[in-house]
Design a protein around this nucleic acid. Sequence first.
DNA 1: ATGGTTGCCTCGCAA
Length: 262
Amino acid sequence: MLRIATWNVNSIKARLPNVLDWLRTAAPDVALLQEIKCEAAGFPQLEIEDLGYNVAVVGQKSYNGVALLSKRPMTVTAEALPGDPADEQARYIEAEIDDLRVGGLYLPNGNPVDSPKYPYKLAWMARLRDHVAALLESEQPFLLGGDFNVIPAPEDCYDPAAWADDALFRLDTRRAYRSLLNLGLTEAYRALHNDPGAYSFWDYQRRAWELDNGIRIDHFLLSPQAADRLEACAIDRGPRGLPKASDHTPVVVTLREAADAA
DNA sequence: ATGGTTGCCTCGCAA
């Protein structure tokens, strides 16, 4: 089995004890981290390597930033989402691990929707769609994991009406997300569970965690060849309830090995 | 109730 986690840690420096504890106990084979909020030189590489991970980082000062951790050998295949060389935001990292292509992403938030941030989000999603189309051409199994900043459906939100015009839920956002899925991808959690209220993010404000006012925005999208190997997908709410928690909690997908595929 | 919280490394911006 291959277990892959995604977690928006909201600053790797502020979260290091929580992240190290979770990696030790959950011990995923691969971990995709978002919002590390530091440059590659400031990433706590040694502490994570001590847990048995190879480390690849696409960093940025203060904002964004993604990392890919793998206990197995990996080859980095991309350090930016193709399609806009002028885009300097650190939001995408991709590697080959065994026969699997793994992309870790931090999709733009997009709020406020009447600012340039929203068109940037939609443009980023269009670039992601183009990149997925290219990956599908190869027929190599692949998986995208990360903070998509997209609430796919009303059951993924504690109060859909309140979020109707938010950049994470408005119609144009969900339309772009569906057009990505319609290329032939499988969203791992929803393929295996039909429970409403399975959230991955709770705002720091307004006692959102205590009231379970959450949203589900951290996802795994699988190519057909990867979806054939999908075994499980789970949200680990544990880390969100600990002191000094990130506002996101980890999601873990389990794939059968290539040799075990049906 | 246009509030509230966290992290960046500033005295505001992003989420």
